[in-house]
């Protein structure tokens, strides 16, 4: 985990068809969570639709909801919503 920021648990949310396929989210994920750049080690995937012209984001079960992908996505194709504390 990147040493400069603490993990913050978020709910991840994909609001609409804004993804441009730039893969910044995968690079950010591997950078902050693994300390390297790796598409294979990222906790999300981008796949193609509409004859390869549009893109879909899928989170893997390994996602720890750190929210960096949303923070860095230049298209706001991923949003993060801070989890509300449960009140007993």
């Amino acid at each position: 985990m990147e040493e400069t920021e603490k993990t913050k648990p978020f709910n991840m949310f994909i609001p609409s068809d804004k993804c441009s396929g730039c893969l910044t989210c995968l690079l950010v994920c591997s950078f902050f969570n693994q300390g390297v750049f790796s598409l294979a080690k990222a906790n999300l995937r981008i796949s193609r639709c509409d004859e390869g012209s549009r893109f879909m984001i899928t989170f893997l079960p390994s996602c720890i909801k750190c929210g960096f992908c949303a923070k860095y996505c230049p298209w706001n194709a991923i949003e993060r919503v801070k989890k509300i504390k449960e009140v007993k």
């Binding site: 730039c22 893969l23 910044t24 012209s53 549009r54 230049p74």
Partner: peptide, 17 residues
């Protein structure tokens, strides 16, 4: 235009669907 398409790590996305 139906959408923006970007090369790797590009915040601009100058290509077009």
């Amino acid at each position: 235009k139906s959408g923006d398409v970007a090369c790797m790590a590009c915040p601009v996305g100058c290509k077009h669907a």
